[in-house]
Each structure stands twice: as structure tokens, then as C-alpha cells.
Write a protein that binds this DNA or RNA. Structure first.
Lengths: 135, 135
DNA sequence: TCGGTTGTAACTATAATGATTACACGGTGG
DNA sequence: CCACCGTGTAATCATTATAGTTACAACCGA
């Protein structure tokens, strides 16, 4: 199972999109997500770095740089996920075994399509879709 | 990123499929995967429980119950993965917030399609495909 | 300038994962 | 038939990822 960062990021962005002029503090978002404000600020930092939203230091509130309809879940996913690969592959398989020697390249190839399929689905869903489900 | 169990399981099954009468020990497989024999036996236990292979206690070697072409990566994935969900969702979001109240149901709904897309891809690939890539 | 908030580093706690030790049990070959 | 070797599995340990927390300087607005 993949960590809950995508879920938290979507939650944060849903709040920001819903209350665009609400002076939403990290404290407030944290109380909705049920976590620590620093966790929220950290994640907002990643979203900012990815150009998904803007915020001024010291000032509550943040703004999306795009319309929710134009912000895909893939954009969000890539902004907050450190590792790019979907499945981990064990390292240092035995190069003296014909299978161990080729397994990594083979799995990389096989996993490629699977990851692409997943990313296509993420790309096909936007924050707007989430907001519509929410209300 | 998802753990490396699928990768290890595919590695194990590739060896068993390639050397069907080789008296392959967990020790031998472990040396190819580069891990501890117990890790291999544990995983073989899960694959047995899922009906993917048979083995007798005390006797080296195991046999696939299906042709590699009929064994999908989804079968393998389901055999060895404990959690069914692809993405984790943070728990206890605030029910007093209109967004916190609905976020879990919404995310579950949204993630459903994404997971299905991924599982379809896994279902479309078989151990035979892996073996063909390997050699 | 004061009060409140952000941004970020540093540290801690917890849980998942994988590695390891240990040992009873099962089958096989001499 | 019994000694040997491997399996099956529980229990424990180590490492790492993840999330939570503390702390504090920098920042802005009233």
C-alpha cells in the first residue's frame, strides 16, 4: 500500500479550493485532516515547490495557480511523492544466476506499463472531480 | 512505493518454472534473490496457501499448479499482498468539517478506478510474459 | 511594534519491512 | 530404521519509512 500523502494533499487542496478567501491557517486544515499543523505546512511546501499553489510566508491562506478542473491528481501525486517507481525491486540479485542476472531489467520493463496505466488514471481525474464527489 | 514482495515472488516463481525438476531448495533460491532462505520459505508458504504452487514439507522443490501462461501477475499480487487498497487514506478526519466528513468516502470512490486500472494491467500479464522477457 | 502565522530544521515515536535465529517436523537414502 | 537435510513457522531483531512533535527564526498586517 502506498502512503497517505496523496490523500492528505487532496484533502488540503479541497479545503483551499472550497474557501479561496477564507484565510485558512495550517492549524485549521490540520484540525480537519486530524494531524499536526507542521505536517500540513510541509505538504503545502511541496505543493508550492511544484507550482500548484502560492502562499506568502507569515500570511494565512494559499491560492491555487490553476482551476480545479485543470489540476490533475497526477500533478498532485508527482508533487508529493519522492520515489517515482510504483513497485520496489529487491536489490543485488545474484548475477551468477541466469534469472538473478536479468530479473531487474525484466521487472522494470514489466512494471513500466502497469505504472503508466495507473498514472493515466490519475491524469484523468482532476481536483474538480473530487470537489464534485464531496458536495 | 509498494514493497518488493511482488518482485521477489515473481523471481521465485520464475526459478521454479524454469527448473521444474531441479530439486530447488529455499537456500538456492535465496542465493539468487539475495536474501535469507526463511524469507523465501515464507513467501512460498503464501503462494501455496493461494493455490499457486504445491510443495511437500521436508522435500526440496515445488511445482506450479498452472501453466505460466495461465498464472497472472494479479494472482501473484493478491497471494502475497496483505492490504487490498492501493492508496492509504488518513484516518479520523474531522467529522465537524464538511470536507473532513466526506473525504474518506470520496477518496475511496476516486481510488477505486485507479486501483482497478492497475489490477487490470496485472491481470493482463502472466508469468509466461516474464519468462519470455528473461530469456 | 506586537501578535499570530509561516517555513523549516531537528528530533521522536510508531509501524512496516525484511533479516535472522531457533527448532520441531517430514521425507529420503543409506 | 535412523541419520541427514530441508521445510514450515514462530519469535525476535534491525532497518527504514512515515508521521507526529518541538522549537524557533523570519514574515506580515493591524
Amino acid at each position: 500500500m502506498i502512503n497517505s500523502r496523496l490523500s492528505v494533499a487532496i484533502h488540503i487542496l479541497s479545503i483551499i479550493a472550497t474557501y479561496p478567501h477564507g484565510d485558512i491557517t495550517s492549524e485549521l486544515i490540520a484540525s480537519s485532516v486530524n494531524t499536526n499543523p507542521v505536517v500540513i505546512r510541509r505538504m503545502i511546501g511541496l505543493l508550492k515547490k511544484a507550482g500548484i499553489l502560492t502562499a506568502k510566508a507569515g500570511v494565512p491562506g494559499a491560492s491555487l495557480t490553476k482551476e480545479p478542473a485543470d489540476l490533475s491528481l497526477l500533478d498532485i501525486y508527482k508533487a508529493i511523492q519522492s520515489k517515482d517507481e510504483l513497485f520496489a525491486i529487491h536489490d543485488n540479485p545474484n548475477p551468477n544466476c541466469p534469472i538473478g542476472k536479468e530479473i531487474q531489467a525484466t521487472l522494470n520493463k514489466i512494471y513500466e506499463n502497469i505504472q503508466t496505466a495507473m498514472e493515466n488514471e490519475l491524469a484523468n481525474k482532476s481536483l474538480k472531480d473530487v470537489l464534485e464527489h464531496l458536495f
